[in-house]
Nucleic acid binder design. Structure first.
Lengths: 210, 210
DNA sequence: AGCTATTATTTAAATGGTTAGTTAAACTAA
DNA sequence: TTAGTTTAACTAACCATTTAAATAATAGCT
């Protein structure tokens, strides 16, 4: 199809412009004419390279998700200690979603649709790397070692994810509601705060062995 | 305009059908003809009662947000103890977002748009009831009383909100990824788990006064 | 190198289905 | 009578997609 060695200037420009368009207006709100204009390309070029609007949209979703997958690859480093692992995860989510913050609107919209291929791909990506299992295993190990109190692992993990992702996904509104002036600073401090809260939250207290 | 005493059957049916439509397809994806069909009403009726598609959409957003606001009214009961307060908040979010889960797609899409009136209304609603301030004050009080350790209040609050809202907003995907079989049960347990994690997370440990 | 056949890219201009919005007349009930 | 409600048919703009022809680029051959 499209060997990755060449530099197909038009094709690339179309992809860039389409990303902008779909991020701003969504799939059904996005206009092919506007994409062509932004890409400084004749509209028919879009149908030449991608054969339909839906196809073009899908190409963007795929590219984005592929990138996300690669970046999350190193998500859990089993060799490190438990707290370090959590911190590493927290930092990776921070970095990946900060660097890709441009795509947040598209991701939220896709997450809102219940039939979206994005959701399916995301689920596949996550389960292929068995992130949930590895995560649960970490907690289980913490329990066995006696460091963690007894609690529902799933509830705990989802709380941890929520602490991390809620802010990263909805930063604009959250910043506005909670009057976060210096977002950058707030963002950087987030992993430490989250991990500390979480660790203290699940750690057994010193003499609690009934 | 439209006095709230009568029972304008057509008008109501239009609103219902439009909600369904926009929830499923969004504003730009929603079709007026389909709404008319679903409402068993001539398309012109839609323009008779609401004068444009955007207006109709806005009417639905407004109605929904008004209802949300009313239901969140009792959000913080200052008289109760701190932990009880958090639990009450957690439960209210749970109830409100569970009862309105139908509207989640529309909310997520609106949150994704950076110019949405929904976002502005949401921010106004929250700040009119000064929820952020009251929340921060609760934490501050906990610190003064010596019960809470020293930490960034804003970070803590946002973590709390994240634990609660992340799951409620994205339940379908989260359930799928984390293999939550019995969603209802999981949901019901959530407030207690969240509050316990959070309280333990910010409570000072017994002899920690450096 | 030059000439040619073939393939890739680009363009301007349609096409035609879709869709928000309109009109003007008819019906209904107070 | 009068105001509110409903209908069928219409319109005009919009917008994804196509067509057919032109222009570059490339490879093959002598």
């Amino acid at each position: 199809m499209n060997s990755s060695l060449q530099k197909p200037s038009s094709r690339t420009r179309i992809l860039e412009a389409a990303a902008d368009e779909f991020i701003q207006y969504g799939l059904s709100g996005g206009r092919v004419d506007r994409i062509a204009k932004r890409a400084r390309v004749n509209k028919a070029m879009i149908y030449y390279y991608f054969s339909s609007k839906d196809n073009l949209y899908q190409a963007i979703i795929d590219a984005h998700l592929g990138r996300l997958g690669d970046e999350l690859q190193a998500s859990i480093d089993e060799s490190a200690g438990l707290e370090e692992n959590l911190l590493a995860i927290s930092r990776i989510y921070l970095r990946v979603l900060t660097e890709n913050s441009r795509y947040l609107p598209i991701m939220l919209r896709e997450l809102a649709a219940d039939d979206s291929t994005f959701r399916k791909s995301l689920e596949r990506m996550v389960s292929e790397r068995s992130l949930p299992e590895r995560f649960l295993a970490m907690l289980e190990e913490g329990k066995r070692s006696g460091r963690f109190r007894d609690c529902d692992n799933r509830q705990a993990v989802i709380s941890f994810m929520g602490m991390n992702l809620f802010y990263l996904l909805l930063a604009p509104i959250v910043n506005s509601i909670w009057k976060i002036g210096n977002e950058e600073e707030f963002r950087e401090k987030r992993p430490r705060e989250v991990v500390e809260l979480f660790m203290r939250g699940i750690e057994r207290r010193d003499s609690n062995v009934g």
